[in-house]
Computed example of a mutant assay.
Amino acid sequence: MDVLTDAIAAMRTGRPHSKRHVLAAPWGMHFRDYYGAAFHVVLQGSCWLLPPDDAAPIRLGVGDVVFLQHGAPHALVDHPDTPARPFDPAREVPTPSVDSSATVLLCGAYVLDTARPHPLFTAVPPVIHLPAKLGQRDSLRAAVGLLGDELLTPRPGATGVIGAFIDTLLLYILRTWFEEQAQEVPAAGWALALQDPAVSGALDAIHQAPERDWTVADLAASAGLSRAAFASRFSTLVGRPPMSYLAWWRMTTAARLLRESDQPLATVARQVGYGSGIALATAFKREYGVTPGRYRTGLVTAH
């Protein structure tokens, strides 16, 4: 597992979903506050995104992708002056014929725990707009095309395929944004951390083996840097010292294991580098404010 994949997996709390919309002007859809993140893709035609917090409208064309990491209230309209009706996913809307005047959108949402995001997400702006660029972002466009085709003509296995494609689309959106940010001047933070061989290598090592008794010296040696140089570079790009990040990731991994499995606490403790269930329970309560048992019971009750 790499850092970007792990960051998403640690925050995911439910299955993503998406829907294809065919719209004839005038039209407007208002999306309420959502516990997670949302995305929209223009497959045909054009429209306007009315972002959260009354920010300036953004015109979207064919192939444009937008990602809203906080799922804040926003709207899509055929024109900025068109009123937007509340979007109800349970309400069936008559679908017009797909002619040259129709706008075709691919809209979806991810169920993510934004209350405790991976620090990687703190670098992501509230709205990411990735305009279509001829000859660029081929992987992103391919993922969009595959998801759009599957939603247009569902076939056997569609449920699993669509979920996998939506997850893949999220990875491509974030990868594209981070890679392009790393090319900006000046670039810093996680955009550079994912591209920096020393820091990204250390992050991968921590994510692949959180149970290992890592030291700054170990990580520095694997990066081919002195202890001081490595610690300084890691802290600057990641936003916290190596051992602080390791402790945070261990707790985050423990929470995910408690959420997704029924493994005994002692087993979870061994997988995240704690010598006993008691040691993990103490650290977990300090971090989350509840014991691992109450955390797991609360999740069961909530569902």
Results as ranks from 00 to 15, higher is better:
202 A>P: 02
191 A>N: 15
232 S>L: 13
226 S>E: 08
212 R>Q: 08
239 G>S: 11
226 S>V: 10
238 V>H: 10
208 Q>I: 11
274 Y>S: 03
254 A>R: 10
268 V>D: 07
238 V>D: 08
188 A>P: 00
236 T>K: 15
180 E>H: 09
203 L>C: 15
200 S>Y: 07
271 Q>L: 08
270 R>N: 07
227 R>A: 05
178 F>G: 02
207 H>V: 09
258 L>Y: 06
237 L>K: 04
250 R>G: 04
192 L>W: 03
218 D>Q: 15
255 A>V: 05
211 E>F: 12
255 A>I: 03
218 D>T: 06
249 W>V: 11
276 S>A: 04
196 D>E: 06
281 A>Y: 01
239 G>Q: 07
229 A>W: 01
182 A>V: 13
243 M>N: 02
234 F>M: 04
196 D>N: 10
210 P>A: 08
236 T>F: 01
176 T>Y: 00
260 E>V: 13
232 S>K: 09
210 P>D: 10
251 M>F: 05
272 V>Q: 06
278 I>R: 12
215 T>N: 11
263 Q>Y: 08
224 G>D: 00
274 Y>C: 03
180 E>F: 00
226 S>F: 05
231 A>T: 05
242 P>H: 12
221 A>Y: 05
183 Q>R: 15
243 M>C: 03
189 G>D: 07
189 G>R: 01
202 A>M: 13
196 D>C: 08
176 T>L: 02
236 T>Q: 05
228 A>W: 11
181 Q>S: 12
211 E>G: 14
180 E>K: 02
257 L>E: 09
225 L>C: 02
220 A>T: 14
262 D>G: 15
220 A>C: 08
228 A>I: 06
247 A>L: 05
269 A>W: 04
199 V>R: 12
228 A>F: 01
190 W>I: 09
268 V>F: 11
204 D>N: 08
261 S>K: 02
199 V>H: 13
208 Q>A: 14
204 D>W: 09
180 E>V: 01
278 I>K: 14
229 A>N: 06
241 P>K: 06
234 F>H: 15
178 F>I: 00
268 V>G: 13
205 A>I: 05
248 W>G: 07
226 S>Q: 04
239 G>I: 02
227 R>L: 07
176 T>G: 02
281 A>L: 01
277 G>D: 09
177 W>Q: 00
228 A>H: 06
248 W>T: 07
212 R>T: 11
263 Q>W: 14
206 I>M: 13
206 I>P: 04
217 A>C: 15
259 R>S: 15
280 L>Y: 03
255 A>K: 15
216 V>P: 02
231 A>L: 01
181 Q>H: 13
177 W>A: 00
177 W>K: 00
267 T>P: 03
206 I>K: 12
202 A>C: 15
227 R>E: 10
257 L>G: 03
280 L>F: 10
252 T>F: 02
212 R>M: 11
232 S>N: 07
279 A>K: 02
275 G>N: 13
238 V>G: 14
259 R>H: 09
195 Q>Y: 01
214 W>S: 02
278 I>C: 03
192 L>D: 03
